[in-house]
Amino acid sequence: MSVLEVRNLNIQFGGVRALDHVSMEAGEWEIVGIIGPNGAGKTTLFNCITGFYRPNKGKIRYRGKPITRLPVHKRTALGIGRTFQNVGLVKNTTVAENLVTAQHLETNYDPWAGMLGGPATFAEEARLRERADQLLELMDLSDVAEARVADLPYGVLKRVEIATVLATDPDLLLLDEPGSGMGPEEAHALGDTLLELRKEFGITIVMIDHHVPLVTQVSDYVYCLNFGEVLAEGRPDVVRNHPEVVRAYLGEEPVEDPADVASEEYV
């Protein structure tokens, strides 16, 4: 059974068809990459999966359960976590406070107990802070734990956002441009971190990124979208060298050796 299954998804905004019969899936513990030029429909696909948009046609299933009509909060409760292109953090608080706040749905006390305080409340808050510290260490962010989010560079903020989503204990992690604002070395280090997160938490990851080397470094399977359609899919090396993918990114015909073309396996 796939963790995530999208079938024949269509969505229109006015006369513009943003997604046209898009299908994809992600299996247990897989890392699936989604690439494509600006305006290809990548973030629209994420918005449909997470419930921010309702598709005109098509089905979305999470672990075999239909979720196409579920609201956002119910999808989150099932175990779907997501980051955004524009970092979604409480910027006037510290990094550690953001991670603790993200865990409050998992607390074992009611709001009144939280306001009045007490031994059980203090013990629970200590547990949340300890877990936050563990996540910060795993994401190599311990040195900025007490830094104000608003004071951090964009590349660090993206890592903080991933840590904050992990604090919600997701089963499926959707990453929207996690490598944005990072140089090649930072992006490569992020790729190593994502592989470690999969191993550490046993999660499935679906990621959008323009940084193709990052996507091919970590992904088991890749989809390329263009003008709202799946242009190519398959192993990272196959999709990266697919003539239509090269044309979509570069706007020109790929130059390839005929012998390579004959032996290439395209989807």
Rank of each mutant, 00 (worst) to 15 (best):
M1I: 03
S2T: 08
E5R: 13
V6K: 05
V6F: 06
L9C: 08
V16T: 14
R17L: 09
W29C: 07
W29D: 11
I31A: 06
G33W: 00
G36L: 04
N38A: 06
A40P: 02
A40Y: 05
T44P: 05
L45K: 09
N47Y: 08
T50D: 02
F52E: 14
Y53K: 06
N56W: 06
G58M: 02
K59D: 14
K59N: 12
Y62W: 15
R69K: 14
R69S: 12
L70Q: 07
L70M: 15
L70R: 07
K74V: 12
T76P: 00
G79H: 07
R82L: 09
N86E: 14
V87W: 04
V87K: 01
G88V: 01
V90K: 00
N92R: 14
T93L: 14
V95I: 06
V95C: 02
A96Y: 03
L99E: 04
T101C: 06
T101Q: 01
T101D: 00
A102H: 02
Q103W: 04
H104G: 01
H104D: 03
A113H: 11
G114L: 13
G117C: 03
P119T: 09
P119A: 15
A120V: 11
E124Q: 10
R127N: 11
L128Y: 08
E130P: 00
R131A: 11
L135W: 05
L136D: 05
L138I: 08
M139H: 07
L141Q: 01
L141R: 04
S142F: 00
A145D: 05
E146C: 03
A147Q: 12
L152Q: 09
Y154G: 05
G155H: 12
L157A: 05
E161V: 07
I162T: 11
A163D: 08
T164M: 10
E177L: 10
S180F: 01
S180M: 08
S180L: 10
G183Y: 06
E186M: 06
A187S: 15
L190H: 08
L195C: 08
L197I: 15
E200K: 14
F201L: 15
G202Y: 02
I203A: 02
I205H: 00
M207R: 00
M207A: 09
I208A: 04
H210G: 04
H211F: 11
P213S: 13
Q217G: 05
Q217A: 13
D220Y: 14
L225K: 05
N226A: 11
G228M: 03
V230C: 09
L231H: 02
A232Q: 01
V245L: 04
R247N: 11
V255F: 06
V255P: 00
E256C: 01
D257E: 14
A259L: 10
A262Y: 09
S263Y: 09
